[in-house]
Design a protein around this nucleic acid. Structure first.
Length: 568
RNA sequence: CGGGGUGUAGCUCAGUAUGGUUAGAGUACUUGGUUUGGGACCAAGGGGCCGAAGGUUCGAGUCCUUUCACCCCGACCA
């Protein structure tokens, strides 16, 4: 492509609403243009990058035997009613009616559609397993779209679905997809981590997220310093502490603690480590058709992980409870404890099972119990893992320490089981001629989000730094002064030769000056720029490496071989 | 959905407290010329329903009412 002919509207200034590097640079370098909140136009450069990513995905999917399909973007609302997700998704589903007043939904993900496609078409165990996928625009009417391509309402997602006769076969496919996803991200040149994720109410034994490591990531992940373990903080586990603070010595007793309400105050009052205090977190827990106050008890040094709390109570949602609500049912804010307390349901963190020498609220104004042994209530109580892991906690798989890092979720693979096949009555006949629902897996990868993730991880103050596998063009041939006939002639020759053997090459044949074109090349982020400039008088040109920012001088008659070697 | 902010040239923004010639700058664009190794210079141009609707006024970018859009923090997010 000749730069004079290319539609690449670069700008010196960023749009006023861009905050993330990927958003700023993709907009400034002429990759994307915002249309409305969460909606973007892809211009030629972005389109090329997207195709690169799609090609890699297609190759790796083909390698594990998945077949590409393309399902309708407009989906009948009946399917969503059938699975029950029309309510679960709520306002995120964009609905509309056609001229005949039929209700439709723009597809936010395609489990229902895919199950509908397969049901009654695949009816025998002999035709399983089956893995179908598509790369397609999705629409979710997000409450708050943000960060450019990172969280749009309309986005491109690769979504795959597999159908199996047995759980073992699903496990095999799940592992194969995980390996394929690993290859895709590796080929794209990304630094990533596969982490364990929350399986949510759907349950199922496996849910993993692929996180591209970047400070701007919206997810917090806990990773082990020693082993491969990583998990979304919503699902992260830990081993019991190895070094525990010295326990306070006290007989069981009720103790006057005037105005000592917070954990900090309590620890200070008794001069003990918060490890030995019991924190009571009261929340209003909402189920489908009821709601009530539930108290969650944790060690004072821990915090409640709401996703775990939702799973433990099988709730739809959990919201903060006001002091008034607590007083109404007879709880004493600041002095709530698990002993002698029958006003509200409670859940106790499993780390507190059989805990001794504890201090907790006495459910009476200005009193705490000391020397509490939770062993006495173990029988009746409901224990569950509801605590968020802390940095420095021990890895559940080895003796390494956990630390936190930020990640961008670019993929999510999930063992669905029979959730959707049962709901949609998608069944096959097994070897005994008995009808069984398909055992399913679902595998998502955010293609447009990957475009942003690549830049979040690969940029500097001057712009994008595309990896070789993702670059819109591999080589930029820059003629410093187009009025110089020798420079221009060499530029044309190189451009033609590279193009002829299939190298993706841009010829910067604009009238502008050296500095302007260099800034532009850095902003767009071509991996290599061949500078044909004043050095040509000495028979030399230069290769500018975008990632290292180094310029290498090369004899002009050797440049073709040299660049071919670099881009291999 | 709560809280905050912003809408003026393609883009980034002045101008609005106190209403008053033809609404400005930088950048981008067009033409001509000079320049040519890190976002050049000179000159001449084109480009605006001041987000929208209604109102107050002799007169509204500026004041009042309504509304829409976009952004940020939070809630939400298979």
């Amino acid at each position: 492509m000749r730069r004079t002919q290319a539609f690449i509207p670069t700008t010196k200034e960023a749009p006023n609403d861009a905050t993330l590097p990927s958003h700023i640079f993709l907009a400034r370098a002429g990759f994307i243009a915002q249309v409305a909140s969460g909606l973007y136009n892809y211009m030629p450069l972005a389109k090329r990058v997207i195709k690169k990513i799609e090609n890699i995905i297609n190759e790796e999917m083909a390698a594990i035997g998945a077949q590409e399909v393309e399902l309708s973007f407009v989906t009948p609302s009946e399917l969503w009613a059938e699975s029950g997700r029309i309510e679960k998704f709520g306002k995120e589903l964009l609905r509309f009616k056609d001229r005949k007043e039929n209700l439709f939904v723009l597809g936010p993900t395609h489990e229902e559609m895919m199950v509908d496609l397969v049901r009654n078409r695949v009816t025998s165990y002999k035709n399983l397993p089956l893995h179908l996928y598509q790369i397609k625009t999705k629409f979710r009417d997000e409450a708050r779209p943000r960060f450019g391509l990172m969280r749009g309402r309309e986005f491109i997602m690769k979504d795959g679905y597999s159908f199996h006769a047995t759980k073992e076969d699903l496990d095999r496919e799940f592992d194969a997809v995980e390996a394929a996803y690993k290859k895709i991200l590796t080929r794209l040149g990304l630094d990533f981590r596969i982490v364990e994720a929350d399986s949510g109410a759907i349950g199922g034994s496996g849910s993993k997220e692929l996180m591209v490591l970047a400070d701007s990531g919206e997810d917090t992940i806990a990773v082990c310093s020693k082993c491969e373990y990583g998990a979304n903080i919503e699902a992260a586990q830990r081993s019991a502490r190895k070094t525990i603070p010295e326990a306070p010595e006290a007989e069981f007793n009720k103790f006057l603690t005037p105005n000592v309400k917070t954990i900090d105050e309590l620890a200070e009052f008794f001069k003990i480590d918060p490890y030995y205090t019991i924190k009571a977190v009261a929340k209003r827990v909402i189920w489908e058709d009821s709601s009530e106050i539930v108290v969650f008890y944790l060690r004072g040094c821990d915090t409640l992980e709401e996703v775990k709390a939702i799973n433990a109570t099988e709730a739809l949602d959990i919201v903060d409870a006001s002091e008034e609500e607590l007083k109404e049912i007879g709880l004493v804010p600041g002095f709530i404890g698990p002993l002698d307390q029958d006003k509200a349901k409670h859940v106790i963190d499993s780390d507190l099972k059989d805990a001794k020498s504890m201090i907790c609220g006495a459910n009476e104004q200005d009193y705490h119990f000391i020397g509490v042994d939770l062993g006495v209530i173990s029988e009746a109580a409901y224990f569950a893992d509801i605590a968020q892991v802390n940095e420095g906690d021990i890895c559940p798989h080895c003796d390494g320490e956990l630390s936190f890092t930020k990640g961008i979720e670019v993929g999510h693979i999930f063992k669905l089981g029979t959730t959707y096949s049962s709901a949609l009555k998608a069944e096959f006949l097994d070897e005994n001629g008995k009808a069984q629902p398909f055992i399913m897996g679902t595998y998502g990868m955010g293609v447009s989000r990957l475009v942003a993730a690549i830049i979040e991880q690969h940029h500097d103050e001057n712009g994008c730094i595309w990896t070789k596998q993702s670059a819109p063009y591999m080589v930029n041939v820059m003629v410093s002064n187009i009025k110089d006939e020798a420079q221009m002639a060499l530029g044309e020759e190189l451009y033609a030769n590279l193009k002829n053997i299939g190298v993706e090459v841009m010829l910067d044949d604009r009238k502008d000056r050296f500095g302007f074109k260099m800034k532009d090349a850095e902003l767009i982020g071509f991996p290599y720029t061949i500078i044909i400039g004043k050095e040509l008088a000495n028979g030399n040109v230069q290769i500018f490496d975008r990632a290292s920012k180094e310029k290498t001088t090369v004899a002009s008659d050797a440049i073709f071989e040299k660049i071919m070697e670099l881009i291999k």
